[in-house]
Amino acid sequence: MINQALHFWELLWEMTEKELRARYKHTVFGFLWLVANPALQMLIIGFIFPLFFETQIEHYSFYLFTGLLAWNFFSLSLSKATPSIVFERSLVKKAMFPRAVIPLSIVMSNFINYTVALVIFLIPVLFLNTLSLKSCIFFLVGMTALVVLAAGISLLTSALNVRYRDINFFVQALLIIWFYATPIVYAPSQLPEALLWLWRFNPLTSVIQLMHHALIQAPLPDAILLSYNALIIVAVSVIGVYIFSKESKNFDDWL
């Protein structure tokens, strides 16, 4: 049992390394891209965006970047993990191993990208003087919820995509809508109050709000929203794990 768990982690880590290596291999700058991409995005949002847009949100470029980093992690994970089992069919046909490492390694490699970008982003954030132990905890709670949600949905969609290849297109479409349904470019305070209940069904709302609160002291999500969102994250993850373990037994039949 312990051996199996250990093997699962070793395999997951090996697959994550494979994911990262394959992404940056044969590029001249290699792992430098890991840093360059978010840094470039940060420069544009920090210096060029404020020239064109005026908003009431305080520290808007920080606000925007906090949400965008989390969103990039989430949407990249989901859009790459969903077709991953179909792409890696030769692995599935090779041997018996825990299939979950295929989508989870994609989530994990994106998470490493995310963390690197976050560390770079934290340098300017330090100058805002908003960080404290409490805000770190809020951020970690939000980040954990984000990773759990990304992993749970990835398990669900990657498993279903083996049998129903439409899922991949569905996820692409969903992600476009989901971006605008999440308070990344806007703040919940700008929304009409009568419609606010709708955001209870988007679990990313609390996640992003927790992060905003942690980094730039934006208001915390209210208790009802938070509990709705938490419930959805737990439910989706449980369903994801269940469907994946059920479907993974017969992946080979559909590949």
Binding site: K18, A95, M96, F97
Partner: peptide, 9 residues
């Protein structure tokens, strides 16, 4: 990668 898929540590 391949050996780990076969179950080796």
């Amino acid at each position: 990668l391949n050996a780990m898929l076969l179950g080796l540590s």
